[in-house]
Write a protein that binds this DNA or RNA. Structure first.
Lengths: 338, 338
DNA sequence: ATGAAAGCGCTAACAT
DNA sequence: ATGTTAGCGCTTTCAT
C-alpha cells in the first residue's frame, strides 16, 4: 500500500489524452461520452491509482457526502448501538459520518451545530439517550434534512425515530399468553415517563384480546433500577395478588424481581414467568443465550432506519416507530432437560 | 438560528475594510496584526454571522482537522466505549471524527482506507474488538499518524493502546488480600488468549508479595461465557481445593461462578469473594452500584488516550498499556446492614 | 462528444 | 502591518 497519491484528475486526463472536464465526466459516469474514450480514461485512472480528492470534490460541488451525528453523552447510554447502526448504514451508501458527542446544552449544541454547518454536512442525525425527553427542534437551523433517534423534539413534524413501545408491550403480553400465563403483572419505572405508559398500554391491549387485564401494575415511585425490581416484587407478593407472570419495564428491574421471587422460594419461570425489556445482555460481548426473556428495542436497526431516511430522500414526517423483537430465554420457558 | 450562511470571508473583509488575507489572518489569530484592525474584522465577522467554510479551508490548507476511525463490527463488542471516548476527546480539540464501521477483511479495509485517504484525514484510529488478535499493520498505508486501540498489529513499533491486564490482575489480587482472603483461585477463558495469561500473571505477582500463590487456575478449555463460569466453579469445588476467593476472567464468568456457589449453599462474599473483569454492568444505562466487584478496563479513557496521542503530536511507539480501575461491589464486601 | 475556462472560498507565498 | 496574487483539485457552465 502506498501513501496517499498526489495523482490528480488532470494527470489522468493528460495520460488519457483528453481534457480535464471529459475526465471528470467519465469518472463520474455523467454526460454522453464515447465508450472508447470512457474506457481509456477509466483505464488511465486505474493505472495511475488515481484517488479523487474528496475535499476538493466536496468543495467544488458544495456537497460533502457526509452526514453529521450529534449524540448526547453516548457513554453508558443507549446511544452507542444507534450510532453504530447509523454509521454502518451510511457507510453502505458511501457516506462518511461526522460524529460529535457532547451534552445537549444550548451552548455546546450551538457550537457543534456551527461546526457541522461549516463542514457542509448533507444531513444531520441527532441521537438522544432517552425518548422521554424532548429537545428543542434544531431542524430549522439546518438547510439539510434532520432526523432524531431515541429523542423527542418540540416540533411534531420532525422525523423522530423511536422504538415501538406499544408493540413491545404487546409482544410481551402475547408471549406470556402463549405460554399459558393469565395472571400477569407489570412492574416499571414511574409512569411520568411516556415510554412506561406505552408499554403498559401494549400489554393491556394484548391481554384484552384474551379478555384479560393486568392483575397489578407497580410503577408509582419506580425507577429503572434492580433495586426497584426487588422492592416492587416484594410489594407485589405482599399484596397477596395471585401472579404467574411479570412484565418488567427493563432488564434491570427484571433481574431484581427474579431475585425477590427466588428469595421467596418461587421458581422462575415455573411459578412466575418474567419478561424484561432492552435485551441488555444482548448488546454486550460474549452474551449468554437462553438467559432472560426480553424485548429487544433493535436500536442498531433503528439507527440504520434513521440513516436510511436521511440519505434516501424520503419525506417521512413525524414519529417513525420502529419494531421491537422478542428474545425468548429461560425466564419464561424452562430449559429443556438434557 | 438561521440556515447556513453564504457569508464568505471576502464579505467580512470588505465590511471591515481590509483585504482578504488580512481578514484570514485576523480570524485565525495568525501573523502580526494591529489590535484595532483585528477587532474591526472580528466584529464584522460576528455581525455578519460569518461561518468559515471548513471544506474550503481544508481544501486550501491540505489538512482537514478530521481524524478517521475504522472500527471492527462495533455492535455487541467492546469497541463502542472506545469510539465514544476517542470522539469526545477529538471534539475537545476541535477535530471532527470520520467513522467507518465494518469488518476488517482485506477488501473492506482497503476500500475504507482509500475513502479515508481521499478525505485527507489528519490521523487514523483503528479500533478492534479484542486485543487477542493482531491486524496486519496499516500504518505505512497512511502518510499520517495511525494508532490502534484494543487491537494488536503485526508491527511492534505501532502505537497500540491496550488495557494493562497485568495491572488488572494485580488490582484484583491486592483487593482480595486486603479483605483478608488468602486462598484465591482463578477462572478464565482458554490461556491461548494472551490477555488471560497477563491477568493471571498480575494476580500471581500481587499474591507473591504476600508469599502466596493461586490455589487453582481453571482456564484450560474455558470460554468467556457464564456457562464456563458455572462449570469451572463446579469443578473447582469438586476438586476439594479450599477456596475463599475467585478472580474471574470476565463478569460473565463471575456471574456463572456465583450461581454455582450459591447453588452449593456457599455465601458470596462471606464464604467466597468474587472479582470479575470488564465492569460489564457499568457501561450500561441505569447501572446498579454495589453489585459485582470488577476491574474496569476504562475503555472510554483508553479511546481518549489514543485520540490524544494522535492529535498531540507525541511520538509514542509500541504498546501503550492503559490503567484499569477496581470497582468494589457486594461480591467482595458484604453490604452494610441497614 | 469533447474542450476551454470560470469559479468554489479559502490559504499562503510574496510584495510592499 | 497589510495588500496582491497565485493556486488547492475539482465541478460546471458554455462553447464548439
Amino acid at each position: 500500500m502506498s501513501p496517499a497519491s498526489q495523482v490528480t484528475l488532470s494527470d489522468v486526463a493528460s495520460v488519457a489524452g483528453v481534457s480535464l472536464s471529459t475526465a471528470s465526466r467519465a469518472l463520474r459516469g455523467e454526460g454522453r461520452i464515447a465508450q472508447a474514450t470512457r474506457d481509456r480514461i477509466v483505464d488511465a485512472a486505474r493505472r495511475l491509482d488515481f484517488q479523487p480528492n474528496m475535499l476538493a470534490q466536496s468543495f467544488a460541488s458544495g456537497r460533502s457526502r457526509t452526514v453529521g451525528i450529534l449524540s448526547q453523552r453516548a457513554v453508558g447510554t443507549f446511544s452507542a448501538p444507534i450510532i453504530i447502526g447509523a454509521v454502518r448504514e451510511l457507510g453502505q451508501s458511501d457516506n462518511a459520518t461526522l460524529l460529535y458527542d457532547a451534552d445537549f446544552s444550548l451552548q455546546t449544541l450551538t457550537s457543534n451545530i456551527r461546526k457541522l454547518q461549516s463542514r457542509r454536512i448533507d444531513a444531520l442525525l441527532m441521537v438522544g439517550d432517552t425518548p422521554d425527553r424532548a429537545l428543542p427542534s434544531v431542524t430549522d437551523a439546518f438547510p439539510v434534512p434532520v432526523a432524531y433517534a431515541f429523542l423527542g423534539t418540540t416540533d411534531p413534524d420532525d422525523a423522530v425515530f423511536l422504538p415501538d413501545y406499544v408493540q413491545a408491550g404487546r409482544l410481551a403480553g402475547e408471549h406470556l399468553l402463549e405460554i399459558g400465563r393469565t395472571r400477569i403483572a407489570h412492574i416499571s419505572a414511574a409512569p411520568t415517563e411516556a415510554t412506561v405508559r406505552l408499554r403498559e398500554q401494549g400489554v393491556r391491549e394484548s391481554l384484552q384480546d384474551a379478555d384479560l387485564d393486568l392483575v397489578a401494575s407497580l410503577t408509582e415511585g419506580g425507577t429503572w433500577s434492580r433495586q426497584w425490581g426487588v422492592l416492587a416484587a416484594e410489594r407485589l407478593l405482599a399484596s397477596g395478588v395471585d401472579v404467574d407472570a411479570i412484565f418488567c419495564g427493563n432488564d434491570q428491574i427484571a433481574f431484581g424481581a427474579i431475585e425477590t421471587l427466588r428469595a421467596r422460594g418461587l421458581r422462575v419461570p415455573d411459578d412466575v414467568a418474567i419478561v424484561g425489556m432492552d435485551n441488555w445482555p444482548g448488546v454486550m460481548p460474549h452474551q449468554d443465550v437462553n438467559g432472560l426473556t426480553t424485548v429487544d428495542p433493535r436500536l442498531t436497526e433503528l439507527g440504520a432506519a434513521a440513516a436510511a431516511y436521511l440519505t434516501g430522500g424520503q419525506s417521512a414526517t413525524g414519529a417513525q416507530v420502529q419494531p421491537c423483537s422478542l428474545i425468548i430465554g429461560q425466564s419464561t420457558v424452562p430449559p429443556v432437560a438434557a
